[in-house]
């Protein structure tokens, strides 16, 4: 391919410019999170390149261990996210196997119902489920939000895992049955390990979805500091002290740490997970 020198410079210049535009806002946040309160309000973060100084780790100390309790919120987010990822995957994998490799009356219509439920936006469920939760005082518990996330992610998970599991070679399963394996044994020892790529893709999508979610957490877990997740706490700081940038910048960074690390470590699965998740309602 023949490309002239000038067009090559033009292309490289444009992509570098775009990458810079994309990165500078985050960089500004990152630098600001290490500046003292006085330094932040006295000068823009870009002045640190010409006048270094005014750095401190206090912001992180204050936001994690201080009254805003982002440390607690971090643990809450973990406690919400891990089961809210594993539970729907496990349930969906069982269901996907059932739909793919077992026969029972009404199978087709039930599966079509599952796929049809993909279009339902979760907003439609908030009020009825909240009412049901309040009736059995389940609201504000981890169980409540695990099940809610499971419910909202399950249609997609079942659909994706069905697509994968139903395509596994029939001979492998048949030889397992001939060897006397039950469905349960076939599923746990054969299907689950074979489905790792599909499970991982969905896991990353669901992980990101739950970790970054605001609406579901705000509705079913609430803003009580004991249980609130990081997105809820950050929204609270924005609402009450929107100019306290020393807290907001450090807090936002704490909340991004895990998903960005997962992104950098598992980029390939990450891309697949995002593609798979493109049909979430």
């Amino acid at each position: 391919m023949k490309t002239s020198r000038t067009s090559l410079i033009l292309v490289n210049g444009t992509v570098i410019l775009l990458a810079a535009i994309w990165t500078i806002p985050t960089l500004g946040l990152f630098i600001t999170s290490f500046r003292t309160k006085a330094a932040i309000s006295d000068s823009g973060w870009w002045t640190v390149f010409t006048h270094p100084g005014g750095f401190s780790l206090d912001n992180y100390n204050n936001v994690i261990f201080g009254g805003d309790g982002l440390g607690t919120a971090f643990l809450n987010t973990l406690a919400v996210t891990i089961p809210a990822v594993v539970i729907p995957i496990l349930i969906a994998a069982f269901a996907a196997y059932g739909f793919a490799w077992m026969s029972f009356p009404g199978k087709k219509i039930l599966f079509i119902t599952v796929v049809a439920l993909l279009v339902v936006p979760l907003q439609i469920s908030l009020i009825p489920i909240l009412k049901a939760y309040l009736a059995v005082s389940l609201n504000g518990t981890f169980l409540a939000i695990w099940l809610a996330h499971a419910g909202f992610g399950l249609a997609l998970a079942t659909y994706l895992l069905y697509n994968y599991i139903s395509q596994l070679p029939k001979d492998i399963l048949e030889s397992a049955y001939i060897d006397g394996a039950s469905h349960f044994q076939t599923f746990t020892r054969l299907i689950l390990p074979l489905s790792t790529p599909a499970l991982a893709s969905f896991a990353i999508f669901q992980f990101l979805w739950v970790w970054n979610d605001l609406l579901v957490a705000q509705t079913f877990l609430g803003t009580n500091k004991d249980v609130a997740v990081m997105t809820s706490r950050l929204l609270n700081i924005v609402g009450s002290r929107g100019q306290d940038w020393q807290l907001l910048t450090a807090g936002a960074f704490v909340s991004m740490l895990v998903p960005v690390a997962v992104f950098l470590a598992l980029q390939r699965f990450f891309v697949r997970g995002m593609m798979a998740g493109s049909v979430k309602g």
Partner: peptide, 30 residues
């Protein structure tokens, strides 16, 4: 068409990992 495609793509894809709440804080600051 650029030799920097890996780096550029990583930087531009990265915001995808950031929550909308986090992104909103980044941009409120901008």
């Amino acid at each position: 068409r650029s030799k920097l495609d890996r780096l550029v793509k990583t930087l531009i894809f990265l915001p995808m990992a950031i929550s909308f709440v986090g992104a909103a804080i980044i941009w409120r600051f901008v």
